[in-house]
Simulated scan of single mutants.
Amino acid sequence: MYRQLFRLSVIFILIFFLHPSFVSGQEEVKYDISVAGISIGEMTAVKRKAGQKTSYEVRSEVSFWFFGRINVDYLVETEFHGKQLISSDSQSKTNRGDFRTLIQWDKDHYKVDSKNYKYENTSPIHKPLHFSSSVFFFEEPVNISEFMADGFGLVSPIQKVKDYYEVDVNGNKNKYYYVNGVLEKIVMYSPIKNYVVKRK
């Protein structure tokens, strides 16, 4: 009986430790979100890898004053197969309305259905992409010229400027700062409020 229990224990340990998702592991980073030096919320980015599949989850909660109190819960879930973006689901739940952008690879193009703040987009994208908003948190975009802006369903340019990368997302130019390949800070420009995302 003890021998059988021992064998079962060994089998369980081998299955658990050799499972692809465990071997590849999970990465998680946390950021503080601030406006004019005042903290308004937090952001957590998670990367999970299992075999050829890599998934990203970026979640944030902020609360700030803009002609009244605004609360925003944001979640984007992105999936890659190999190096190619396969799908993205961005959701913003606010006390002023809810918004969502769905992006899905379909044979030879991305289907896009974006309903954002004062913005809508259903234009398909007829080429595969290999970088998205979520990936910035885990990879420096060295030699990358464009990416999928998850919240808008747009192909947006990336340009290296001095000590940061500048991206143009629907007319808003955001700046990503890396130190030794690690994302330390983002200066974000938005129609409502400009803010800074800084690594904890």
Rank of each mutant, 00 (worst) to 15 (best):
G41C: 10
T44H: 03
I70D: 08
T54A: 00
F99A: 08
A50H: 03
S92P: 00
G51F: 05
I40M: 11
G25D: 08
E79K: 05
G82W: 04
T54M: 01
S60A: 09
G25S: 12
N71F: 11
V58W: 02
I38W: 08
E42Q: 14
R48D: 02
T78G: 01
S90F: 12
Y74W: 10
M43C: 07
N95W: 03
D89L: 14
T78E: 10
E79H: 08
E77I: 10
K49C: 00
D73N: 15
S92L: 15
S34E: 15
G25I: 07
D89K: 12
Y31W: 09
T44W: 02
Q26H: 06
S24H: 11
D89E: 14
S90V: 07
S88A: 14
H81E: 08
W65T: 14
D32Y: 04
K49P: 01
I70F: 00
V23W: 09
E27V: 07
I38D: 10
V46G: 00
G51K: 01
S34D: 10
N95M: 03
Q91A: 14
D32I: 15
Y74V: 05
R69S: 15
Q52E: 13
D98L: 11
T44D: 04
F64G: 07
L85H: 05
G68K: 05
Q52Y: 04
T44A: 10
V62D: 01
G41D: 09
E79V: 12
G51W: 08
H81L: 15
M43H: 03
K49Y: 00
S87I: 06
F99C: 02
S34V: 03
K53S: 03
G37D: 10
T78W: 02
A50E: 13
Q52N: 15
D73A: 13
E79A: 14
G37W: 09
M43S: 12
K47H: 06
D73K: 13
V62Q: 05
Q91K: 15
G37M: 00
G37T: 04
E27T: 07
V29W: 01
T94Q: 03
K83L: 12
V29E: 09
V46Q: 09
D73F: 11
S90I: 02
G37H: 10
F64D: 03
V76P: 00
G82V: 10
K30W: 12
E27P: 00
